[in-house]
Computed example of a mutant assay.
Amino acid sequence: MEAVDPTIYRLAIFVLAVFVGYYVVWSVTPALHTPLMAVTNAISSVIIVGALLAATAGVGAPPSPDGDGGEGFSRIVGTIAIILASVNIFGGFLVTQRMLAMYKKKER
Rank of each mutant, 00 (worst) to 15 (best):
T40F: 06
F19I: 15
I83V: 15
R10A: 15
T40R: 00
A55G: 08
E2K: 07
A17Y: 00
F90N: 10
P35S: 04
M37G: 01
E2I: 09
V15A: 14
T56C: 10
R108G: 15
I82G: 05
S44G: 12
M99C: 12
N41D: 11
A31Y: 14
R75Q: 10
I8V: 13
D5H: 08
N41P: 00
G21L: 03
G78P: 06
V20A: 10
S74T: 02
S74F: 00
V49M: 03
I83E: 11
A54H: 08
V87H: 11
A31M: 13
A42H: 03
Q97H: 14
T34K: 08
V28F: 03
M37D: 04
R75I: 05
I13L: 15
A101I: 03
P62D: 06
M37E: 07
G91W: 09
A51S: 08
A54E: 02
V4E: 10
G60N: 05
I76M: 04
G92A: 06
T96V: 02
T40Q: 08
G69F: 11
A17I: 07
A61G: 03
A61I: 09
S44I: 07
G78M: 00
P63D: 10
T56E: 02
K106W: 09
A3P: 00
I80P: 08
G91V: 02
K106Q: 14
A3G: 06
V49Y: 01
I82S: 09
L94Q: 15
S64I: 07
T34V: 11
F19N: 10
I83H: 03
V39Q: 04
D66L: 10
S45E: 10
A81W: 01
G58P: 08
I82N: 05
V20S: 06
T7G: 11
G70R: 07
H33C: 07
M37W: 07
K105S: 13
T40W: 11
V15C: 10
I48K: 02
T34L: 08
Y23S: 12
P30R: 07
T7Q: 14
I8G: 05
A57C: 05
A54F: 08
A54P: 04
A12I: 09
A85E: 03
V24E: 08
V46H: 05
G92P: 03
A31F: 13
I80D: 02
T40D: 05
L16P: 03
I76Y: 01
I80H: 06
F19P: 09
G70T: 06
E2G: 11
A17H: 07
V28M: 10
K104F: 09
T79I: 05
